[in-house]
């Protein structure tokens, strides 16, 4: 399972994966992404549909059974969580070294 090829994730993909820690359907995902990003990332319907299709294809998310007949529900897969964690570590490292350098040089 090669998860390195997904790194770095785009901001949109990162938030979408994060929005699927709990199962949700497309529109709820759009709202969650907006909330999580402090209203900075707004995904339109057509873009969201394509992103879901793409993430399912790469098996980072999967569709799950739900009572809603008109809306498909998705949840993040284990591979998706791995990818998310990997990117989280990458960003943590960047934040950490940036903090250190800034405090040392008093920028």
């Amino acid at each position: 399972m090669d998860i390195n090829k997904y790194s770095p994730l785009t901001e949109t993909t990162y938030y979408i994966l994060l929005s699927l820690i709990e199962p949700s359907h497309g529109y709820v995902m759009m709202q969650k992404v907006e909330q999580l990003s402090d209203h900075k990332v707004k995904i339109a319907a057509g873009t969201m549909y394509g992103a879901i299709e793409n993430l399912v294809k790469h098996r980072l998310i999967k569709s799950v059974q739900s009572d809603d007949k008109r809306r498909k529900t998705y949840v993040i897969t284990e591979k998706g969580i791995e990818v998310l964690k990997q990117d989280y570590k990458r960003m943590s490292h960047m934040i950490h070294i940036t903090d250190n350098l800034f405090s040392k040089t008093d920028k």
Binding site: H25, G26, Y27, A45, M48, Y49, R70, R71, K72
Partner: peptide, 23 residues
């Protein structure tokens, strides 16, 4: 606005349209 998509299953088509209508 115009999108281009074809669907194999009706359920996919409904899911697609519902996503747009929700938004």
């Amino acid at each position: 606005k115009i999108d281009f998509r074809k669907f194999r299953h009706s359920t996919d088509f409904w899911d697609y349209i519902t996503l747009f209508e929700d938004s």
